[in-house]
Design a protein around this nucleic acid. Structure first.
Ligand code: SF4
Ligand code: SF4
Lengths: 147, 147
DNA sequence: TCAAAGATACATGAATAATGCACTTTATCA
DNA sequence: TGATAAAGTGCATTATTCATGTATCTTTGA
């Protein structure tokens, strides 16, 4: 019962972008290499997360020389529940088929857990990337001094 | 992001016991074999879960011939949050050390997720084993006709 | 046309969960 | 008092999922 690193990496990337306010017209876009050097991560894994964030249209990616990526939305419009749901995959937290559980027709548990899961995400929906940037200055400093 | 089968098995066992109202003075105690036949599970795994439930004093186990186990508390006193927290293990849902994340000193995310996790469990705390036995008759029927 | 970037596909490694096996301990009953 | 049926315990194995690595392709700007 733990979020995947994959998901956390996605959020780190968004925090990094948010802290730097990189836009399409910025002098230099953020690259996968930047992220990897800052956080000490595998380029491959980050590659996939970046690609995923791109498909979700949370960031916009640019290929080719001087390429990279930047936030496609204002930080205030990126809600945490969406990011986590998408990166994590929002399967049920309890699996009643596969294999089939005989109790299923009379079971109340799956519904309760499912509702609890929704409450978790509803709570996350109250926050946006902006809330992760409360200490933006400190973040920027950390990110700039790490490589 | 999914509960372990281990945890679900524990809840199935409790539901089974609750549906049958097995007490210390009942004619026959429930055995691991009963559970396995009913749900089609591995005896070993169930063994461990039963043992765990015993250590948690949710059930009382009896060794030896005619042994088995039964609920050690009234179903209304067994809250779901406790069962799931204990069986699942309640580690943080996001791991910031190991390896250490540079953003940690300025990160708001871990706190938000931790609070969301608590909300999940607080929701579960509203329910007890009794709530899983709403359809007790149907459950008993399912459990008695399965083996 | 070259080099730097992401995109894509496949392979490998690591961690954890799930299961299996062997054996011990304990209680009951015949 | 011995056979038997139950849980307890420890270790080995398998399966699954996650994390990472390698290689190659595609795009794009200088
Ligand atoms: S016990 Fe209930 S929740 Fe668990 S697998 Fe069976 S049907 Fe699903
Ligand atoms: S980004 Fe925040 S939540 Fe994620 S690992 Fe780093 S400190 Fe923890």
């Amino acid at each position: 019962m733990q979020l995947k690193k994959y998901t956390d990496y996605g959020l780190r990337i968004l925090m990094y972008l948010g802290a730097h306010e990189t836009h399409a017209d910025a002098p230099k876009l953020t690259t996968i290499r930047d992220i990897c050097e800052t956080f000490g991560l595998s380029a491959n894994h980050v590659n996939k997360v970046v690609h995923h964030l791109g498909r979700l249209q949370l960031i916009e990616t640019r290929r080719g020389k001087n390429g990279g990526f930047f936030l496609a939305k204002a930080p205030g419009e990126i809600t945490l529940d969406y990011v986590i749901r998408q990166l994590e995959g929002d399967e049920p937290w309890i699996e009643c088929h596969n294999p089939y559980c005989v109790a299923l027709p009379a079971c109340e548990l799956n519904g309760i857990v499912a509702r609890g899961k929704e409450l978790f995400y509803e709570y996350l929906a109250q926050f946006t990337l902006n809330d992760l940037l409360k200490k933006q200055g400190q973040l920027r400093q950390i990110f700039s001094t790490t490589p």
